[in-house]
Design a protein around this nucleic acid. Structure first.
Lengths: 143, 143
DNA sequence: CGAATAGAGTTGTATATACAACTAATTGAT
DNA sequence: ATCAATTAGTTGTATATACAACTCTATTCG
C-alpha cells in the first residue's frame, strides 16, 4: 500500500466537535466580543477590568493574590499591570501591594454601567440556565 | 465633601464574581493549560490543532469557512495558518482552498492520542454534567 | 552569621487574538 | 462591458497570555 493510500483511523474516528478546549475557546471569543465592544469607549480591556475589580474589592493586594484569583500567570499579570500603571489607574505601595488610585476608582465607577450593559447582553444570550451552567463548569474545574 | 471621601456606589454594589466574561476567561485558562501541556511535545498549540481538525474533516476548505466554524477573526486565522504552512502541515490550492498535506495528516494522526488524554483529564474535572453544561452554554450562545 | 533556598516579580521570546486599513478578486447593476 | 460594491485574504499595530530565565528579597538551616 502506497503512502497515498494510508488510512488514518484516529482522524477518521475522532470527533473534534466534542473538543472541550475548542468549545471553550469558541465560547470565549463570542462572549469577550460583547464585553470588548461595551468597554472599548472607556479604554479598558476585559482583562484590565477584571484586574481593577479584584484590586477594588480587596483594597490592597499582592500580585500573587490577583494571579491566584484570576488563574493568571504572574508574567501576564505583570504586563497587564504595566498598562494600568501607565494610565494611572493603580499604584504600587512600598511593600509591593497594589491599590486603585483615586483616578482608577473614578474611572471604574464610570465603566461599571457599560459592564452592566454587557452583562445584560450576555445574559440575554445565555439565559438563566446558561448562566447556571457556566457556574457549574467553573465550580467543577476549580474544585 | 472632599474627593478623598467620595463614595462609589457602583463599585460598592457590583459583584465582579458574577462577571460572565471573567468566569469564561478563568475557565479558558484552566482548560487550555491541560491541552497545552499534552500537545506541547508535538509542537502544536490548541488553536493550531483546532484548525487542523477542521481542515481534516472538510478535506478542502476556504479560510472563511474555518473562521465561521471557529468564530475566529480572519486575520487571526491568517497568521495561524502561516505557522501551519511553515511546518508543512497544510497547503493552499490554486483556488485558495486549504488542505492537509500528507505530513499534516500523519502528524495529526500521531497527535490525536495526546488530545484524547487531555480530553480524559478535562472530563475528569468537568464530569458528565459539567460537559453537558458546557455544551448548553455554547448552544445558547450560537443560537 | 552566612549560605542555600524559596518566593515574588520582571523581562525575553513566542503564540493568539482582534481591529483597521489595505489589496486582490469577484460579483452586480446599469 | 464597465464601474461600483462586496468579499476574501494579508499586513500593521496593539493587547493577552504563557514559559523560561533572570533578579531581588526574605527565610530557613547549619
Amino acid at each position: 500500500m502506497s503512502a497515498k493510500n494510508m488510512v488514518f483511523p484516529n482522524i477518521e474516528s475522532c470527533n473534534p466537535r466534542l473538543c472541550i478546549s475548542g468549545r471553550i475557546s469558541r465560547i470565549q471569543r463570542i462572549v469577550s466580543e460583547i464585553f470588548r465592544h461595551e468597554l472599548k469607549p472607556y479604554g479598558l480591556s476585559n482583562s484590565q477590568l477584571s484586574i481593577l475589580f479584584v484590586v477594588a474589592k480587596r483594597e490592597a493586594v499582592m500580585q500573587k493574590e490577583i494571579c491566584d484569583i484570576l488563574y493568571l500567570e504572574k508574567s501576564s499579570l505583570s504586563r497587564n499591570l504595566t498598562r494600568l500603571f501607565s494610565k494611572n489607574y493603580i499604584s504600587k505601595l512600598d511593600n509591593g501591594l497594589v491599590q486603585l488610585t483615586q483616578k482608577g476608582k473614578v474611572h471604574l465607577e464610570t465603566v461599571i454601567p457599560a459592564w452592566n450593559r454587557a452583562m445584560v447582553t450576555a445574559r440575554e444570550k445565555l439565559g438563566n440556565e446558561g448562566e447556571d451552567a457556566l457556574q457549574l463548569v467553573l465550580n467543577n474545574l476549580v474544585n
